[in-house]
Every structure is written in C-alpha cells, then in structure tokens.
C-alpha cells in the first residue's frame, strides 16, 4: 500500500518535472528540473529493488553529468530570444508533422494492438540478494562484447575531441613543472658584491 502511494507520488513528480524541462524558458531552470527528474527516477528504481542502478544514476548523472551541464549552460550564455526566432513561422509545419506522427502511433498502439504481454507483479526478492553482483555477472558474460564496444565508442569520442580542438600555438606561456622543480637558487637570485658606500 505504502509502496503504491510512493510510486504515484514519485511518478507525478517525475512527469511534472519532465514537462517543466521542455517548457522552462530559462535554460538553468530546465537543467535543475532535469536533476529533479533523475532523482525521482532513482527513487522509482529503489521501489523496483534496483538499488545499484538508483545509486549509480544519482552519482553519475546528478553528481557528474548534470553539474557539467549546468556549467556549460551558464558559460554558453544562451540567447533564448535567438533560439525562439522563427518559431512562429515553423510552428504550423511542425504541428502538422507532430499530429500526423501522433495519429500514426496512436493507430499502431491502440487501434491495432501491439500484442505485447505486460509482465505481472513479481514476488519481492529475498533479503541479501545483490543486484550489483547480478549486473556485474551479466555485463561480463552475456553483454561482454557490447560492453567493451561501448568503451571503444568513448575512446573514439576522446580521440576525436582532442584531435579537433588541441592546437599547438607558438608563443603560449606555459608552466613546465619539471623545470620549476629542478630550478637552482643560482638561476633565480644573483648575488652581487658591491662596495659599501661610505658615509661622508
């Protein structure tokens, strides 16, 4: 009973926040609402007994990705007016396409029936069941090939980003830590012996 209530509360917050993400005028608000989305989604996963995924979602997405997003949005200084220009001109066409796609999807999903059997409710897992171990086992057996390939995709993204942005310009002032550490006093301070001035 309590779980059902919690589910509906989180689900309502999630849908509300997701709607807010696309309707918010201020990009920073949109990002913050997206954070709310992730946190409530993590709560839903907890209800589904997927504790590991819930923790990872909060740690990786909220903790790392969204913070980066927020930095980018704040630094880019997005001009909302610029983005909205041409909205009125393109809106009728976009609306037409959206309506057609929605009708087609509606026809496929409701009128003709997808023929998908929804799984019923499952018995709760026994205490001490570790879904971290389950995920680890599956990742390194059934999905070991796609898992490694996903890593290759990330490697290519890194190589591409560096190849496209790294530029060696001459005359850039850079620190060379090795030279800083290896410096000797003689290279920095020159002691000059001077004859002391006599007071007259």
């Amino acid at each position: 009973m309590l779980i059902t209530i919690l589910f509906w509360v989180y689900a309502a917050v999630l849908v509300g926040a997701a709607t807010g993400v696309i309707l918010a005028r201020n990009p920073v608000h949109a990002v913050l609402l997206l954070v709310l989305c992730f946190v409530t989604a993590a709560a839903l996963w907890l209800l589904l007994e997927a504790e590991f995924l819930a923790v990872v979602l909060v740690l990786v997405y909220v903790g790392a990705v969204m913070v980066l997003f927020l930095f980018v949005v704040m630094m880019l200084d997005v001009n909302v007016e610029e983005l909205r220009r041409g909205f009125v001109r393109n809106a009728p066409l976009a609306a037409l396409v959206a309506v057609i796609v929605a009708l087609e999807l509606g026809y496929a999903l409701w009128v003709r029936r997808l023929g998908v059997e929804l799984p019923g409710t499952k018995a709760p897992l026994p205490a001490g069941h570790s879904n971290t171990a389950e995920i680890g086992t599956v990742l390194y057996t059934d999905y070991v090939w796609p898992f490694q390939l996903a890593a290759v995709v990330l490697l290519i993204a890194i190589v591409a980003a560096i190849a496209l942005t790294l530029r060696h310009r001459p005359g850039v002032r850079q620190q060379d830590v090795g030279r800083q550490v290896a410096v000797r006093p003689a290279a920095r301070v020159r002691l000059v012996r001077m004859r002391s001035e006599h007071e007259p």
């Binding site: 796609p146 390939l149 996903a150 290759v152 995709v153 290519i156 993204a157 591409a160």
Partner: peptide, 10 residues
C-alpha cells in the same frame, strides 16, 4: 548499434 556508432563517430 554499437558498431554503427563506432563507425559514424569516426
């Protein structure tokens, strides 16, 4: 899908 992404990103 992952193969397509590897190819396309490159």
């Amino acid at each position: 899908y992952l193969g397509i992404e590897i190819l396309s990103l490159s």
